[in-house]
């Protein structure tokens, strides 16, 4: 079968026409699939057999057992003997590997939903609470601490796209910077001419009446 462009003759038999049509259709379908593939690159990276099928299936069973199994698998995968005595020199201990490997974490566990990120300003350090839900009664609370005046922490937007605005809010209110965030702007306060982070404990509010000269 010659390509469609070369069959430029006056008369084409019916079967050939039909075949050409089918071929064209197949080409179109392939192109569409290609576009789909491009669109779903994020999904395509995900390992088969885990998590989100199509349509989405929510996890079943107890979160505790899943979590335990997962943590064991995680430790062996990372080359840890136990959380206490891990070797710092193993090559999977780099930060990018952690975030890269974490991509399927949400799906393997079925913890699909990031409920919120709370930042608490413990003067001198920042405590971040990530509340994760599996939408089926299980919940995971991850707490972490960042030291310093201008803290930086990895963004979780790669795993939970919903974290986008949660992290923007945290940045706005506390000045916590998120590495790898696609669009770290202020969420609530105005973008320029405002250098404060209002929920810091050092930001004092005044309860003075605001209309003193507004007779």
């Amino acid at each position: 079968m010659p390509p469609a462009s070369q069959t430029d003759v006056g008369w084409i038999p019916k079967e050939v026409k039909k075949k050409l049509k089918e071929q064209k259709k197949a080409e179109q379908a392939a192109a569409e699939a290609d576009v789909q593939k491009k669109r779903l690159t994020r999904r395509a990276r995900r390992p088969e057999g885990y998590g989100l099928g199509w349509p989405l299936t929510l996890p079943e069973g107890d979160l505790q057992t899943r979590l335990k199994r997962y943590l064991e698998g995680f430790a062996t995968g990372m080359g840890w003997r136990s959380p206490r005595s891990r070797e710092p020199g193993t090559d999977r201990d780099r930060a990018e590997d952690l975030t890269g490997g974490a991509d399927d974490r949400a799906e393997r566990l079925g913890v699909l939903h990031l409920s919120f990120i709370t930042v608490v300003d413990r003067v001198g350090s920042f405590e971040l609470t990530y509340e994760l839900l599996d939408l089926r009664g299980g919940q995971v609370r991850v707490k972490t601490k960042v030291e310093g005046e201008e803290p930086v922490i990895d963004s979780v937007t790669g795993i939970y796209p919903t974290a986008n605005w949660h992290e923007r809010e945290a940045y706005d209110m506390f000045g916590v910077a998120f590495k790898g965030h696609p669009d770290l702007r202020r969420l609530y306060m105005w973008q320029d001419h405002f250098d404060h982070h209002p929920l810091l404990k050092s930001f004092e509010i005044s309860t003075k009446r605001t209309f003193e000269n507004l007779r």
């Binding site: 999904r43 989100l52 199509w54 349509p55 989405l56 699909l112 939903h113 990031l114 409920s115 939408l135 939970y160 796209p161 919903t162 974290a163």
Partner: peptide, 12 residues
């Protein structure tokens, strides 16, 4: 929107 998108965006 698809279900997956909705879950991904954290909708409730």
């Amino acid at each position: 929107m698809t279900q997956e998108k909705a879950v991904e965006m954290g909708l409730t």
